[in-house]
Amino acid sequence: MSMTSMVVLGLSIATVLLLLGAFLATLRQDRKGRTAEQPVEVAPIETPLPAPVSLPGHAGSDYADPRTIKVGDRIEVHGSPSRVLGAMHISWQGQQWVEFRLRDSARRVQWLSVEVRKGLAEGDQSHLEVLLWTDVPTQGMVPARSMLIMEGVEFFPLDRGTAAFRSEGSTGAPDRGLLDFADYRATDGRLLSFERIQGSSWTAAYAQPLAPGSISIVSRAS
Rank of each mutant, 00 (worst) to 15 (best):
M3Q: 15
T4R: 13
M6G: 03
V8A: 12
L11A: 15
V16N: 07
L17E: 11
L17T: 04
L18H: 05
L20I: 06
L20S: 13
L20K: 02
G21V: 04
A22Q: 09
A22F: 07
L24Q: 13
A25E: 04
A25R: 07
L27P: 00
R31G: 01
G33T: 05
T35H: 04
V40R: 12
A43D: 13
E46M: 08
P48A: 02
P48R: 08
V53N: 07
L55S: 13
G57M: 05
G60Q: 12
D62N: 12
D65M: 06
P66K: 11
P66N: 10
P66H: 06
V71K: 11
V71Y: 04
V71R: 07
V77L: 00
G79R: 06
S80P: 00
P81N: 06
S82N: 12
V84W: 02
L85G: 01
G86I: 02
G86H: 03
M88N: 09
M88G: 02
H89Y: 09
S91L: 09
W92R: 05
Q93W: 03
Q95R: 15
W97G: 04
V98D: 07
V98P: 03
V98I: 15
R101A: 07
D104G: 02
S105E: 15
R107A: 13
Q110L: 14
W111G: 05
V116W: 14
V116T: 14
R117Q: 15
G119A: 11
Q125P: 03
L128I: 12
L128F: 11
L128M: 10
L132Y: 02
T138L: 14
T138P: 00
T138R: 11
Q139R: 13
Q139A: 14
Q139M: 08
G140W: 02
M141P: 02
P143A: 09
A144C: 04
L148M: 15
G152H: 08
R160P: 00
A163K: 11
A164P: 00
A164V: 09
R166V: 14
G169E: 01
S170C: 10
T171I: 08
G177Q: 09
G177V: 02
L178G: 00
D180V: 03
F181G: 05
D183R: 08
Y184L: 08
D188C: 02
D188P: 01
R196V: 11
G199S: 11
G199E: 01
W202K: 08
W202E: 07
T203G: 13
A204R: 13
A207L: 07
Q208C: 09
L210C: 11
L210H: 13
A211V: 08
G213T: 07
S214T: 15
S214R: 06
I215A: 08
S216F: 01
R220V: 10
S222N: 14
